[in-house]
Design a protein around this nucleic acid. Structure first.
Lengths: 242, 242
DNA sequence: CTTAGTTATGCTCATATTGTGCATAAATCG
DNA sequence: CGATTTATGCACAATATGAGCATAACTAAG
């Protein structure tokens, strides 16, 4: 049977379908560390556990649109860089029914992290991002007092994949700039890279590499109020992005 | 409203849901070039156009399982390396109804490509993989007589993304070995890389890089029947994969 | 006003990786 | 046996990265 025959003979209404949802991994920098924004589940199942914001996909709604709607309506953030991550389809990932979830990665500038935390039901969890060898170690979420947070459903897997994806794209895409304000110093940029990788970086080599790459342009402005030599502010030069 | 409230108040049966399908991009090497296996659509819509093999996801079936089932039942290949690629959710991507499709990448060794072509309804399309700058140019499919193939639905987008993903993973994962037989020469390995990248590679540098990486082990065996010095066969050394 | 303290920035040198070319090896074919 | 062709290893150049140091620029303490 060919695909065409199969599709022609298939009555979609006759079969039960999985439900389709989107889940958002909101990542940002907080206090110099990589942090995720999580919601505490108030009801069963998995009441009290921490979960990614999510919602079902409407029948006339794009996946990207569904992710944007969740970001706007549930997290209260208008714009952020959204990127599809992976689709999770384990049969028993939700105990209520079969839900296939398209995970999205949202990269928030530091100011948006603070904004979002002010909303009800949202809390930031610092992420422990160890650098255990090339591929990195296990990622775990801890609250501000250092206690490990239990995540609902398969959301720990989703979170771990998000951090790994972020790491992988870090040095050949512009993801780091999405976590920074418009103007930033080279040190801030380096700190973001180090937070994502979970490892310290060579200062000279990092600066040289970033400048040679041509993605950043000096603004001429300088930091103020520091007790030492002020650093120059740079901005992301989108025009020279490869 | 929190996520928990939303989910609790949501009656999944009350809303119309998108249908969920998987589509398979079958990539392999044929005559030294990167090729995709496509099916010609026999019926409307888009009759006569070329399409990726696909099928709907059962309500009690994992996404990976659905992809494996399509590979087995529609393509007739038992085992191949399957990897989730991206989920396509444009509202009008299928004119019949709303279908969200999880695209999978299947990497076939050269022998499996020939096997699969013997099955009814399957044909190989060579892929034009130009190297236009860093990110690569547009990917197009051509038949063996050189004519461009028109692809159904959004399958050209899916195909293009598959090749880009393959390119991106080429030099830090073992994807190339999935397209080769168990024993291969360094030249064969280089040809696979060149076919995927759409650009020639420096021979000395490539050999040195591959050997230094430690992923391949010499077998001691050599080519036979060549009109010149025979190359040594290597095998992929999975034990030293990072 | 001077000096200590701190970080920014640019420079140099050592090391590692990659690009490039060449010499030699090993097979077939005339 | 010599011509031809590709495989393999080596040497050198060019580039990228790691690491450290000298100087600059600011604040705060004295």
């Amino acid at each position: 049977m060919t695909e065409a025959e199969f599709l022609a003979g298939y009555d979609p209404a006759a079969h039960e379908r999985p439900a389709l949802a989107v889940d958002l991994v909101l990542l940002g920098i907080q206090a110099g560390r990589l942090a995720a924004l999580l919601m505490r589940r108030a009801q069963h199942p998995q009441a009290g556990l921490w979960a990614l914001p999510g919602g079902f996909v409407g029948v006339a709604e794009t996946l990207d649109a569904a992710a944007g709607r969740v970001l706007r309506d549930k997290v209260g953030i208008g714009g952020a860089r959204l990127e599809q991550l992976y689709t999770f389809g384990a049969v028993d990932r939700d105990p209520r029914m079969r839900i296939v979830s398209v995970a999205y990665l949202a990269l928030l500038p530091e100011a948006a992290v603070a904004d979002a935390r002010a909303k009800a039901g949202l809390a930031a969890a610092s992420l422990i991002v160890p650098w255990a060898g090339e591929t990195g170690g296990a990622i775990s979420a801890v609250s501000e007092d250092g206690a490990a947070l239990a995540l609902a459903f398969d959301h720990a897997d989703i979170l771990a994949l998000a951090v790994k994806r972020l790491r992988g794209k870090l040095d050949y895409t512009d993801v780091a700039f999405a976590l920074l304000p418009d103007h930033f110093t080279l040190r801030q940029l380096q700190d973001v890279h180090a937070a994502i990788l979970g490892a310290p970086l060579n200062k000279s080599a990092f600066r040289r590499r970033m400048r040679d790459r041509g993605w950043i342009a000096p603004t001429g402005a300088r930091e103020a109020g520091t007790a030492f030599r002020p650093a120059e502010f740079f901005r992301f030069d989108r025009s020279r992005e490869s």
